[in-house]
């Protein structure tokens, strides 16, 4: 039988970034929907309560956190000393591979395309999409944040992003785009988590544990 050897896949930086982003996104979806559909707190005096204020605070805090994580991730994509994966994110440009991958996913074919990079073709497309969504939600989030707070760094960023607000059709549309993107994240999470389990079950290379340990297991002569 062939030897099963662990092979390093993800650096510590990528793993920390991944789980921090995941945590931030979960918090942001939760607090985000609570901002969109706030809950009335009936009892007590007004001055004793600050629920929506705190929710906004947590949301904006994790929002800025996500913005920084995103910058870090983009940096890693280009300058990671272990593996700058920006080229891997273009795997979908190999059309025959992409078609083969889709057949594999639709259970038409039993084999996926050959290993080329870090990501499969559909996976690269999904992650590029995710980065696009993170970028957009960060931009719209910063605009929403700047609209209500006119000082310091926020004001500076808002000043720069004001034309974007105009382009999107005013603050109401910025908020709408921010809200629609939230659903994009919900859908992404469902598919992403499922695919991780699926690969783990089908390929048996330890996909699930790899984002914790950093290693995937491969059969062969490594």
């Amino acid at each position: 039988m062939e030897a099963v050897v662990p092979k390093k896949h993800w650096t510590v930086a990528i793993r920390i970034n991944h789980w921090a982003m995941a945590f931030a996104i979960f918090v942001l979806i939760g607090t985000g929907f609570l901002i969109a559909y706030p809950v009335t707190v009936p009892g007590g005096e007004t001055w004793q309560k600050f629920s929506v204020g705190y929710i906004r605070f947590v949301h904006i805090l994790f929002g800025m956190f996500l913005a920084l994580l995103f910058l870090w991730r983009v940096y890693l994509a280009f300058f990671s000393t272990f593996r700058a994966d920006w080229k891997d994110l273009l795997a979908f440009t190999n059309i025959p591979n992409t078609v083969q991958q889709i057949k594999f996913y639709l259970l038409i074919d039993k084999k996926g395309p050959p290993h080329t990079g870090l990501y499969g073709p559909m996976q690269s497309l999904a992650y590029l999409g995710l980065f696009g969504m993170v970028f957009l939600i960060v931009v719209t989030g910063i605009i929403l944040m700047g609209a209500g707070y006119g000082a310091g760094f926020t004001a500076l960023l808002y000043g720069i992003l004001k034309p974007v607000e105009r382009l999107m059709g005013g603050l109401a549309m910025v908020r709408y785009i921010h809200h629609v993107l939230t659903w994009g994240f919900v859908l992404f999470i469902v598919v992403h988590v499922y695919m991780a389990f699926w690969y783990d079950a089908v390929l048996k290379q330890g996909t699930l544990s790899s984002m914790v340990s950093g290693y995937m297991f491969e059969k062969g002569d490594h």
Partner: peptide, 23 residues
């Protein structure tokens, strides 16, 4: 469910996993 049916059977038959596509 469909995957379990399709890939599950393969596993039993020839004892190897399918596909070289990678997560």
């Amino acid at each position: 469910v469909l995957s379990a049916m399709r890939h599950g059977r393969t596993d039993k038959k020839d004892g190897t996993t399918t596909g070289a596509g990678k997560e």
